[in-house]
Design a protein around this nucleic acid. Structure first.
Lengths: 343, 343
DNA sequence: TTGTAAGCGTTATCAC
DNA sequence: GTGATAACGCTTACAA
């Protein structure tokens, strides 16, 4: 493949002139410009962005690290990042930890060697401070999406506490008093949701009952087995708040296996609002996370740091929104059953 | 950040020696190795992979171009690609066309300037030959997943004809005679599925009725409106084959809106077997595409080309598998209704 | 076994 | 305006 020297020779000018024509920032005479342009055409010249990066000390690549690519939850975030970065002339170096905890930081080092200009890490976990702090100390731009770290890096998260409150408040308002919680991985995010759950109950004078709290791993299967546990209870809940839609979908299946109905026998609220939440029957009432927007905001923050506009560390907290669908209703049936018994 | 020269100075050796220690291929005396290693530690040296690439004329980046990242269909493929490539020491430069037809080739040029070592293009469409052929002519490694092109590049696709046959045969075997088709975009892939549909019907002596074929765009909404059209027919189908799960899910909603039941009033078969196919009610009978595997195989082919093992152009055709779930059944109800009328 | 020096393909700083 | 020339940070003949 032709390079600048080839073009320079072909056009009978210096490399410097060719470079000026390519970048179009310096002044070049019209004649030179034509000669160079024509030579580039003839040789089918394509500039080597890699060499350019070496000289400029800027690769225009941003490393993006996610736990998993295929999960729509992350796909949505990545899509938001991608669109924002590409529009600004950056490229994505994407890699996945395949859910290995702590692997983010290995990948971060690798990406760093690749000389990415910055790093966007998407994770539900709390990251070990050391490596991250090293990066921060070197003034290397890092942005965290969905995760937390003690290190001084910018982050975009949602208000998990408030998200949980909204969900539980909704159930309480419908008349539920015995409300189960299917929690996710033991992450700061989920602890916040647990706190939201607990405090909302207590604010409504409903005693917190640890037996109603079961832990899953955010995925479908764990939702099903958590629900199984709740159904085995002496006094099962009339409503359940699952801290991910996937777990809610699993719970739905478990409930159905017991020949019970959602929402009449058990009301169900999810979290995330991934697309399939609309597709299941009954469609899921859930707490929407602005996933795509989280990606966009994280990417925009990165761009600002890269442009030197806003080097300060920010912690952006987005709020969630309750999406009411068919999986929640007042605890009707039970009353009806009781009433039927009275008559 | 420290570079090789810094390390060389710190260790009191030449750059060449440092380089040798880093790459570990040449023989270096134990003493030198120690001195260099210690110097690297002291300076917290991280080699610049970019400069290395420039020298080696090899970036270890593979460009991956997809229509959309968030859609599980592509997510699954990307995940397969990612795992395979990362295990082989490569990195992904990912970008999305955001479904703009033809945009693949612009991105291909951009990635090429970035000096990626190869390009994996995921697309349902037939690509314009010219640009692709240019790349092929330059011996630039390109692999196509799911798409086709007249140009001479390797590709991984599924047997769409056979996939459609399997689906339609299943419906015929159940006793359906009036079978609708919700087709996707007008791509070679979908034309094959249409052909499979048509020829399977004809092989069973069922006349092909163009009124039963409606076109969608593979997405949910289009499936719903296509189904609406089919339901408006004077004589609606008793079974429908949708060429994507997303369209099948849309169709499901439309059917339900008309107070009809799946599978009793209308049986439904999808295509793809994305995760949500299992989650909807009734769960979808569908034709499984080995998505992850397609990504893996495409990536492996790329690795082989890169290693010079298998430069020939191959066209790998994977077969699909029918996954029977709850959305298909014999056209029972109708018979029952007719029988009821007789009594 | 180690060092010297040229090269990878750009950009940027100087002169002219 | 244009052209030498020195970086950028690494690898690799070739020499010693």
């Amino acid at each position: 493949m032709a390079n600048i020297s080839d073009v320079a020779r072909e056009a009978g000018v210096s490399k410097a002139t060719v470079s000026r024509v390519i970048n179009g920032n310096s002044v070049v005479s019209e004649e030179m410009r034509m000669r160079v342009t024509r030579a580039m055409k003839r040789l089918n010249f394509q500039p080597n962005a890699q060499a350019r990066s070496l000289s400029l000390k800027k690769s225009n690549f941003i490393g993006v690290i996610v736990p998993e690519i295929r999960r729509p939850f992350y796909g949505e975030i990545i899509d938001g990042i991608e669109e924002t970065l590409v529009n600004a002339g950056y490229y994505l170096a994407l890699c996945s930890t395949h859910n290995r905890p702590g692997h983010e930081l290995n990948l971060a080092r690798l990406m760093r060697e690749r000389r990415v200009d910055g790093l966007i890490i998407v994770t539900p976990r709390e990251l070990d401070s050391k490596t991250l702090q090293d990066l921060a100390d070197e003034k290397f731009p890092v942005t965290l999406i969905d995760g937390t770290a003690k290190a001084l890096v910018s982050s975009v998260i949602i208000d998990n506490y408030e998200g949980a409150r909204v969900a539980v408040r909704h159930l309480i308002k419908l008349g539920h008093k015995r409300i189960g919680l299917i929690a996710g991985l033991d992450t700061p995010e989920c602890r916040e949701r647990l706190r939201g759950y607990r405090e909302t109950l207590e604010a409504a004078n409903i005693a917190f009952d640890p037996v109603l709290v079961v832990r899953g791993d955010y995925l479908e299967e764990s939702g099903a087995s958590a629900m199984e546990q709740l159904l085995k209870l002496h006094e099962p809940p009339s409503a359940v708040f699952a801290t991910s839609d996937l777990m809610a979908i699993g719970a739905l299946a478990a409930i159905r296996n017991h020949d019970l109905q959602v929402p009449d026998d058990i009301a169900l609220v999810g979290f995330d609002d991934i697309e399939p939440a609309r597709w299941v029957t009954p469609s899921l009432t859930t707490v929407r996370q602005p996933l795509r927007q989280m990606g966009e905001i994280g990417a925009k923050k990165m761009l600002k740091i890269l442009n030197g506009e806003e080097p300060e560390i920010t912690r952006i907290v987005l709020s969630c929104e309750l999406i009411e669908r068919e999986s929640t209703a007042p605890p009707l049936r039970k009353y009806q059953r009781d009433m039927a018994a009275w008559l």
